[in-house]
Write a protein that binds this DNA or RNA. Structure first.
Lengths: 195, 195
DNA sequence: GTCTATACCCCGATAGAC
DNA sequence: GTCTATCGGGGTATAGAC
């Protein structure tokens, strides 16, 4: 760990550094989305950013650090969008809001969807994969409680896995066939929610 | 293209050749499942098979040919299992049979699930990705017809995408958490089918 | 603080001995 | 038919000039 080198937890960072990091993260998201993790080489990332490989490795100590940062950015963007929408929704409406917001987000940011898809199969990328649908499971439980269900959904996790998978399916289909009506599919999925 | 070299469409093949090819395909499935497409190098495949890189490239002209053959084997295994089960099922029961059989197949063959997952994000591997859920869509239409529905499911494709995604979700969850009850999840999904 | 030059390794693939 | 030896290229990462 070099002294003056900017690291992930560096508290002090110059203005140009922050700009460079942000640019590199953006380029990396594009590259990973287009060519996959292995295909997004430092050379291509550097070329797309208009600098050299070494300059990239100056701002991020390794390719892994760079791609991890890009992955984190994608995740933060997602949780920010969905989280904001959930706050403005009644508890009973939150599962449907979750579905619609997430589908819309990935529809509007296809590259983010591809990055997360690539991360899923990548070895040594179990980040954020831990209980990916746990939040949705909690929303389903809370909604059932607000509805006053006697049976508080003993299998909310399984239901969350199904719904989450269906969301991924909608997003994946949209990536292959941009004419696919994601909103209509999301509506069908919402109609399947327990009521 | 060398004369005596065994190729994918070679009609005549010695006994040992067929055995070697089968062994290499099996090893490749394991390697791709464990380390992903890019991580499954010829060197590792050769080492796992107990031969050399050059020997591998003798039987399969290139890494791409080998991994394509492995991918095809995985697909054939899947369609054989599901197809057989579908033949023995009434038309109205075929969507549920499709779900249960596919989930069970991937539960019993986790490596196959990982290979297909890895193939999905890999660049230049759009094989078999064309209308992946078209068969399921057809089964849904046929079942609705057999049921005598007046509305013949105008959006059977969207429904197929949802169900297919949910199946993938169940399988993916099982890969990360082997204690996940895939049969119970499949039953919940089946209960969601239109009736 | 940023870039040039380069080291070093593993990749897939080929040539030719056996 | 299977191996050894090697090539050319791209990969990440480092050392040191500026």
């Amino acid at each position: 760990m070099v002294e003056g080198m900017p690291s992930a937890d560096s508290h002090e960072r110059t203005f140009t550094e922050r700009a460079r990091r942000q640019q590199l993260i953006g380029v990396t998201i594009e590259q990973v989305a287009q060519r996959g993790f292995a295909g997004a080489s430092l050379a291509r990332i550097a070329e797309a950013a208009g600098i050299t490989k070494a300059a990239v490795l100056y701002h991020f100590g390794s390719k892994d650090a760079l791609v991890t940062a890009a992955h984190a950015e994608v995740l933060e963007s997602l949780v920010a969008t969905v989280g904001e929408a959930l706050e403005d929704a009644a508890v009973a409406d939150r599962p449907s809001t979750y579905i619609r917001t997430m589908v819309a987000h990935f529809r509007d940011h296809p590259q983010h969807a591809r990055v997360l898809a690539a991360a899923g199969t990548q070895e040594g990328f179990d980040h954020a994969r831990e209980d990916r649908w746990a939040p949705l499971s909690g929303l389903l439980d809370a909604a059932a409680l607000a509805r006053g269900d006697d049976a508080p959904a003993a299998d909310s996790r399984a239901l969350a896995v199904l719904i989450g998978g269906a969301i991924d399916g909608i997003v994946a289909e949209h990536l292959e066939d941009p004419t696919f009506d994601t909103d209509a599919a999301a509506a069908i999925l919402v109609a399947m929610l327990p009521d």
